[in-house]
Simulated assay, not measured.
Amino acid sequence: MTLRLVFMGTPDFAAPVLSELVGQGHEVAAVYTRAPKPAGRGMELTRSPVHRLADSFGIPVETPRTFRDEGVVSRFAEHGADFAVVVAYGLILPKAALEAPELGCLNCHASLLPRWRGAAPIQRAIMAGDAETGVMAMRMEEGLDTGPVGMAERLAIGADETAGELHDRLSRLGADLMGRAVAAMGRGGLQFRAQAEEGVTYAAKIEKAESRIDWAKPAHAVHDHIRGLSPFPGAWFEIEGARGPERVKALRSTRVDGSGAPGELLDDRLTVACGEGALRLLTLQRAGKGPVDAGAFLNGARLTPGARLL
C-alpha cells in the first residue's frame, strides 16, 4: 500500500531509512531536516546528509529552526501525511506537531528501550559495556523516547567494535526495520506495546570534558571508553612532546594481559597498563594528522617502554 509520508531526519544514520521508503514507492510529501550549517575551512553553508539525499530524489525540503512557531506546525499539517517517520531529526516536536499527521509520528530509535533514551544511545551502550543493542520503531509522545514500541530488532555488540562501526550496522538494520514497520502501519497491522517501567536509562549528549582517558580505571572500562567515542569525538590522552604535552586520540584498542602503573607503556607494541589489567592501542591520531596504526605512531612519537601516557 502506498502511503503519503513526511520524513524528518538529519545525519548519516537517517539517510538509509529515507532511501528505503522512497524505494518502496511511498509518496514522501516533504523532508524536514536541520538547517544548513557553516563547515570546513571556508565555513560554507553545508546541507545535512538527509538534505542532500532529498535533493537527489527531488523531494521538497523544509528546514525550520524550531517547531515552537505555530506557523511551522500549520505548514507541517498542510502536507496531509498519513504519518511522519522521524529518525534523529534534532528538533523537539510539540504535541500539536505529533498529532498533526492522521496516524501520528513513528520514530526509529537506536537502542533497546527503555534503556538509553536520549541523544547518544549508540555511544552510551558501548561505553557502558553493553553486550547488545538494537533499533526500535516507536510511536512518539511528548516525553523523551517514552512512546510505545511497535517493532524491534536486536544486535550483538562486538568486543572491539567502535561506535562508528555499530552506527553503520544499526543504520542499515534501522532502514530495514522502518521499511517493514511503515508497511505494517499501512495495513493497520502494527501493534504497539508500552515500554517497561523498569530499566530506564538516559543517553546524555557526549560532552568534551568526558573524552579524556583515565588510565586509573580498569582496562575493560578504558577500552569501552575508547571504542565508544571512536571516531568522534575521540577519547584522548597526552604524551610529553618537544614543546610540552601533546594530545593524542586513541581510536581503536583491544584488551590484553599485563600490569603496571596506570598509563605506563609496557612494551614496544603500545601495551598500556590500567588500574586493573592492560590494553593495547591499535589506531591513534595526533593533532592535525590522520589516523595511523600503532607502529607508524611509535615511529613518530618515539615512545619507549616505561614511558607514561598522561
Results as ranks from 00 to 15, higher is better:
243 R>K: 13
65 R>N: 07
246 E>C: 02
267 D>V: 00
82 D>C: 00
9 G>L: 08
165 E>C: 06
282 L>W: 06
139 R>L: 06
261 A>L: 13
216 A>P: 00
84 A>P: 10
94 P>H: 06
182 V>P: 11
274 C>F: 06
97 A>Y: 14
242 A>C: 08
119 A>T: 13
305 P>D: 08
303 L>K: 10
146 T>L: 02
281 L>R: 02
231 P>S: 04
17 V>T: 15
105 C>D: 12
86 V>I: 15
4 R>H: 11
209 A>I: 06
266 L>K: 02
88 A>S: 15
128 A>Q: 01
43 M>F: 00
111 S>D: 12
229 L>R: 05
80 G>T: 05
298 L>T: 04
243 R>Y: 07
164 G>Y: 11
116 W>F: 15
61 V>L: 07
308 R>E: 05
261 A>M: 12
238 E>F: 05
156 A>W: 03
301 A>R: 01
278 A>Q: 10
144 L>W: 01
205 K>C: 03
189 G>N: 09
159 A>N: 04
294 A>P: 03
111 S>C: 11
274 C>I: 05
135 V>Q: 07
180 R>F: 02
151 M>I: 01
4 R>V: 04
182 V>W: 08
34 R>D: 06
154 R>S: 07
281 L>W: 14
82 D>T: 10
217 K>D: 07
218 P>G: 10
232 F>Y: 12
125 A>F: 09
283 T>Q: 11
243 R>Q: 11
66 T>N: 07
